[in-house]
């Protein structure tokens, strides 16, 4: 009996004082930000404020770290964040003049209660002697959970970027470097590829439009593609699927004229370019047409001979 009591007490003490494993906090995380992009066009020596909203979409409080990162973009409009080691002096100079304010106080992280939405103020100062130039950077909100387990683990952080296009000046110079389409198409839909360029010092926002007219000048279709933000001294390929813009209408045989128009909303030059395209029906239709012609020719020949 005494032995059993000693064993019981020893085991109880062991469990009582042994290291208790930290709970696994494998909770879901969710964060929202608006707007996805802020386009600012200004002059040197200005101070600008604009709102950025952030929302905790979970049922528990979260803390988000706020990071500023300059970026460049590729021809598809994808954003490539620049790593700290690759920062230029210009990147650093603008970032030091950017602050995110909560109730007038500059912050580098924010605590959000469950489902809380907070409007922050993005404050940017431009240098008085700033030459016409663009700066592109993202404001990134990152939720850092810092959970632990007694086993090996990988923490999972989520974050969202809000992109900022800051133009000092108003100089965009647009051109269409390529607007093409296959000369003949076997299908009813027309396919176009287009590449545009901006050789100016500042970004341009455009709403491209392709107008397709038949041989009599009648407008058959207007293809309105999405808004494009074309950065300074950059080119961009239009079209969502592998750089191809596809008409919704199907076309019968005949020549058509397609004109692309860039329609900038910012003060930039409007540019357009046209091309001609000949639509042929599919091979089956073409063969059917050829057979009909052949039969007709034979019929006429036989009729002439019988006369």
């Amino acid at each position: 009996m005494i032995k059993k009591t000693i064993v019981f007490i020893t085991l109880s003490l062991f469990f009582l004082f042994s290291e208790v494993a930290e709970p696994v906090l494998a909770q879901e995380q969710a964060l929202g930000v608006f707007p996805p992009i802020t386009k600012i066009r200004t002059k040197s020596g200005q101070e600008i404020s604009t709102p950025i909203k952030v929302k905790n979409l979970t049922d528990r409080p979260i803390e988000a770290q706020i990071i500023l990162k300059p970026f460049k973009a590729d021809e598809d409009g994808k954003v490539n964040l620049i790593l700290y080691k690759d920062y230029t002096a210009e990147n650093s100079s603008i970032l030091k003049n950017v602050k995110l304010l909560e109730d007038g106080q500059s912050i580098s992280n924010i605590v959000l209660s469950p489902k809380q939405e907070e409007a922050l103020s993005l404050n940017i100062k431009t240098e008085t002697n700033q030459k016409p130039q663009d700066f592109y950077f993202s404001i990134i909100f990152i939720v850092s959970p810092n959970d632990k387990t007694e086993n090996s683990y990988s923490n999972v952080r989520i974050g969202i970027a809000s992109n900022i296009l800051l133009a000092i000046g108003n100089n965009s110079n647009l051109s269409i470097s390529d607007f093409s389409s296959p000369l003949f198409t076997g299908e009813g839909n027309l396919k176009f590829s287009a590449q545009i360029e901006n050789s100016g010092d500042n970004y341009a926002t455009i709403h491209p439009l392709i107008t397709i007219k038949n041989i009599f000048g009648k407008t058959i279709e207007v293809i309105e593609t999405k808004e494009e933000n074309l950065l300074a001294k950059a080119s961009k390929t239009l079209g969502e699927d592998s750089g191809v813009i596809v008409s919704k209408e199907k076309y019968f045989v005949g020549p058509y004229t397609a004109t692309i128009e860039l329609r900038p909303t910012s003060p930039a030059n409007s540019v357009s370019k046209s091309l001609s395209v000949f639509v042929m029906p599919g091979l089956t239709s073409f063969l059917s047409f050829a057979i009909i012609l052949l039969i007709l020719a034979l019929f006429i020949k036989i009729r002439r001979k019988t006369r």
């Binding site: 909770q27 879901e28 969710a30 996805p36 929302k55 683990y153």
Partner: peptide, 26 residues
């Protein structure tokens, strides 16, 4: 200055959001 928030051809002011089902891989 001129400031434009978001894309002019998207009227929606929905929050862009990202969600992960867990905060840790054990």
């Amino acid at each position: 200055y001129q400031i434009v928030l978001g894309f002019e051809d998207i009227p929606s002011e929905d929050f862009n959001s990202i969600e992960s089902s867990a905060s840790i891989i054990d």
